[in-house]
């Protein structure tokens, strides 16, 4: 796979230097300047939609030292056990989307719970052997934090619910 590997190769660099002409240097410098401007603009005024020039905001939000950390999940009912809500993994291999993607659309889901039906449809395509989902709801679990320490108090609320027609 690796071409050019010689058994006797010594890796010491020689003094031989391959230079670049002025035009080659000019456009390369131009590219670096454009990239620098785009990345800085993205960080100054851009948002996620600017990717790959979006701001580097991993773990950038402030979390109040006292408050609640919330975590979203889904619960489903299957034809095998109607009326019984069981938690289901909110993961791409299971529903085609991940937790953060669903968390970001809570307002749209609350406005139109029928959207949740598409998750059941994706699940049926991705997991054809699993029992079909007849109902699905989004729940939010709140974990209470006081002085940067979880108290163990847990609250659960249902945000939206869908039933197969």
């Amino acid at each position: 796979m690796a071409v050019g590997v010689r058994d006797d190769a010594t890796e010491e660099a020689t003094d031989e230097v391959a230079g670049l002409g002025a035009p080659a240097k000019a456009w390369r410098t131009g590219v670096v300047v454009v990239l620098a401007v785009m990345f800085c603009l993205g960080s100054l005024v851009g948002n996620d939609h600017w990717w790959p020039f979006s701001p580097w905001r991993m773990y950038s939000t402030s979390q109040a030292a006292t408050g609640s950390v919330w975590s979203t999940g889904i619960e489903v009912q299957t034809a095998d056990a109607p009326g019984e809500w069981v938690p289901a993994p909110l993961t791409p291999p299971n529903v085609g989307l991940n937790r953060a993607e669903v968390e970001g659309r809570i307002p749209q889901i609350e406005a139109d719970p029928a959207r949740l039906g598409t998750l059941a449809a994706s699940h049926a395509k991705l997991r054809p052997d699993a029992p079909e989902w007849t109902a699905l709801r989004v729940v939010r679990r709140l974990i209470v934090v006081v002085d940067r320490k979880p108290t163990g108090e847990l609250r659960t609320e249902v945000l939206a619910e869908w039933r197969a027609p």
Binding site: S43, R57, S60, T61, S62, Q63, A65, V145
Partner: peptide
Amino acid sequence: AKVRFGGWDWVNSATMV
């Protein structure tokens, strides 16, 4: 980005928690 979105107070927040 931490300054922009979290504010200078980011360092004293509970983000890591």
